[in-house]
């Protein structure tokens, strides 16, 4: 591809991203806005490929577009049941200028910052020197699970905290009910077919992304997200019944990742290497153990976040669309 053609492609992609973003915000209808947001996420993922960040592209496509999209679509469904999915017209008059000016000012400041910022130091030499001792060849995985593993440990705990927050918003009387809304699946329909075909494929792709992430684009978050999608599809298609919050396997799966991560850090500290400081000889083994446990926990936690709080079947069954009550 010549330079001019590549520039045209990138400019076209940016214009498309901006248009999809605009349609997701200002287009008519909340449902349509969510659909445009999913398209927007996929276009942004293409942008990440063009920036040479394939790891980020995978995360954006799987999490930013995929799981967030399912989450927003499920919320539109909940709001429809509560009679709150109707769109609200935009503000008019003088007050409408304030948000427009604020947005323009922020964009202007960022553009100014881009040209005013000094060129960052290239990470080349230090990284090239440290990478062979990290235990993995994918530099992003090396950063996530070795050089800056503190960030990743705390992130795993943030995920868990968010899930607890979502569960706390369930109604008291629903606490022992299964997670999420009941789905009504027509036998032999599209969803039932998806439920049989997609989970095995997704399982394969998710485990591959986890394993390949050591040396190629992929990793615990991308693999975990695909596995979360497998769980969500299987539950939506009625292949498996959602558990309640007090199910022991669920609780074990939720804390396994952060637990193994924290445990590895403490063991390394006790051995004298320092908390989460991986010695070169054991780095690969520790990273594989932590990543595997983390992938399982990420998958279950993300699926839990998308499913929502425990909900009693009588309150929101698919058979009674007017089941919403104040």
């Amino acid at each position: 591809m010549t330079g001019a053609a590549a520039l045209m492609l990138d400019l076209l992609l940016v214009v498309l991203v901006a248009f999809a973003g605009w349609a997701a915000l200002a287009g008519r209808g909340v449902f349509r806005a969510v659909v445009f947001f999913i398209a927007y996420g996929l276009l942004v993922a293409l942008g990440w490929v063009r920036l040479g960040a394939v790891n980020v592209a995978l995360a954006e496509a799987a999490i930013g577009a995929g799981l967030t999209g399912v989450l927003l679509l499920a919320t539109v469904g909940r709001l429809e049941r509560a009679g709150a999915a109707r769109d609200v017209p935009l503000m008019r008059g003088a007050a409408a200028w304030v948000p427009a000016l604020a947005g323009l000012a922020v964009t202007g400041a960022l553009v100014w910052a881009w040209f005013a910022l000094p060129l960052p130091e290239s990470p080349g030499p230090q990284l090239a020197e440290a990478l062979p001792r990290s235990g993995v060849e994918n530099p992003v995985t090396a950063v996530l699970l070795n050089f800056r593993s503190w960030d990743t440990l705390l992130e795993a705990i943030v995920l868990l905290a968010a899930l607890l927050g979502v569960w706390m918003l369930g109604r008291d009387g629903d606490w022992t009910a299964p997670l999420g809304l009941r789905q009504h699946v027509r036998e032999g329909g599209v969803m039932a077919g998806f439920g049989r075909v997609l989970p095995p494929l997704g399982l394969l792709v998710g485990v591959w992304l986890l394993w390949a992430g050591a040396d190629a684009p992929g990793g615990a978050f991308q693999g975990g997200t695909v596995l979360a999608a497998v769980i969500v599809v299987a539950l939506m298609a009625g292949v498996a019944a959602p558990p309640g919050v007090d199910a022991l396997p669920l609780r074990v799966a939720l804390v396994l990742g952060p637990g193994v991560f924290l445990g590895a850090g403490l063991v390394l500290a006790a051995l004298g290497a320092g908390f989460l400081t991986l010695p070169e000889a054991q780095a690969k083994a520790v990273i594989v153990a932590v990543e595997t446990a983390l992938t399982l926990s990420i998958a279950v936690t993300l699926a839990g976040l998308v499913l929502g709080p425990p909900t009693a079947p009588n309150g929101a069954a698919a058979r009674t669309p007017d089941g919403a009550r104040p």
């Binding site: 989450l71 899930l163 979502v166």
Partner: peptide, 24 residues
């Protein structure tokens, strides 16, 4: 050249945290 992996790792962390915040 190769993009710096440290910002990429932070961005992946950010994408996951954004999903948790959105879910809440």
């Amino acid at each position: 050249g190769e993009p710096d992996p440290v910002p990429q790792a932070l961005i992946i962390t950010g994408i996951v945290v954004a999903l948790s915040a959105s879910a809440l």
